[in-house]
Structure formats: C-alpha cells, structure tokens
Amino acid sequence: MSKSLLNDATVLARRNLEHIRQVPEKLTNVTVQPLMFVLLFAYVFGGAIKVKGGGYAEYLLGGILIQTLAFAMMGPAQTVATDFQQGVIDRFRSLPTRRSAYLLGHYLAEMLGAILTIVILIGTGFLVGWRSHADVLHLTEGILLLLVFASGIMWMGLWLGVLVRSPDAVMGIGFIIVFPLTFVSNAFVPIDSMPTVLQWMATVNPVSVLIAAVRELFGNPITPVTKHVWPIDHPVAAAWLYSIALVALGWWLAQRRYRARTTD
C-alpha cells in the first residue's frame, strides 16, 4: 500500500474539522462552556472559598483545566457513535484504508479541539487574575502533561463511542463517570474542607493528583494534604504515570473494541 496511515488519518481528521466549519456550535463544549465555568467559579465561589497561599483564580485554573479536558471525552464518543449509527463506518471500511486510520483521524481532530480548549482556559484564567509563578521549563512540562492527559481522555472517549449503541447514550454514561470524579476532588475546593470519607475519596482520586501536578508545575497554590498516600505526595511523577497509563489503556480498549465491532 503506497499511501501512509498518517495520510488516511489526516484525510479523516479533516472531515471532523469540516463538520465544525459547517456546524460551529459543535465547538461550544470546548470553547464557550469552559469559559463560562471559569467565570462562574471565579466570581460565584471565589469570594466564599479561601485558599492559603494565593487567590482563588490561581487555585481554580488547574482544576478547571483537568475537569474540562475530562468532560471533553464526550466529543469523540458522540462523533464515533454517530458514525456507527449512520453507517458511514461501512463506507470507510470498504475503502482501501488502514483499519486504525479511522480512530486515529478522530483522535487527531479531537486533539486540535483540546489544544484550543487549553488556550481558551489559560487566556480566560489570565483575565480573571490567574498568574503562573513557575519558570518556562515547568510551565512547558505542565502543558505537555495536559496534552498527554487529553490524549488519554480522547482514547477513552473513542472507546466509549465504539462501545455504546447510540449517540444518545454517551451523555448519560459520560456524566456518570466524569461528574463525580471531577467534583469529589481538589478541583474547586481544598480537600481539607470535606468530611473525612470524602477526604479519602478525593485524596486517592487520580483527578486530584493530576490537578495538584498542574498546580505545582504552574507554580500555583497547593492546598494541604490531609491523608498521605504516595500519588498525592508526589503529584507530578504520579500524574505522568496516570496520564501515560490512561493513554495506553484507552488506546488498547478503543482498538480492541473497534476491531470487535467491525468484525462480523
């Protein structure tokens, strides 16, 4: 086969971008929605929640970044589920394309969306008073960590998309998974303000670890840890491990399920 996997994947990724050009409101969940979250949390909760070592805006950004990227799982899930429902998938499968090109194409397009989200969030954060107190090296590492985490999320989303029978199911399942994970964490309030049971849950929650890592790398305030376990005590190292594991797991699950679903 003379043409490469990357050629097929970029042709397919362009298809997603074209969808966005035709229906720009598809982008609201990665643009307007996170922007709204920053403003709401910064101004509605900002006055009530006290964070030691800095303003609430500085505390908030790490939480909002991870939360928004986690919710971005529903984007690829919905597009893939829709492709399956409409039979578009059979068209691509009867073409001389590499089998893995289809998911890879979606992944590439979704990552562009994730980059846009990160830019918008950091920009909005800047407007409401977020500042970084880290050097360029750590700041860059923080952004790289966000991108690797986003990759893991996208592959999990692609897996969810191949898993569900209809695109309508994505919202429900996505919320059930992502909502508790992101809220029972240090995303919006310091863990030490929670009841003991929740403190434990929030401490072992990988989302808390990721958020703590982003805050550390961005030089933003980190609230005291009440329960000591290795990941939360070493957030940056643990966050890299979690993110890389998420990419590997999501990729493997998505490929496996895609293979199973397109074999009959």
């Binding site: 362009r14 074209e18 035709q22 229906v23 409409q86 068209r91 001389p96």
Partner: peptide, 20 residues
C-alpha cells in the same frame, strides 16, 4: 453512507483521497 455535514464535492474528494 455519504456524510450529511459535508458538500457532495468534499464527500467525493475525501473518498478519492482515501483511495490514494
């Protein structure tokens, strides 16, 4: 199995590109 959110032309060129 054509894509409703793309023009006819783009549907066809996408498939053509996937044909190499």
């Amino acid at each position: 199995t054509v894509d409703g959110l793309m023009s006819a032309q783009l549907n066809l060129t996408t498939i053509g590109r996937l044909h190499g």
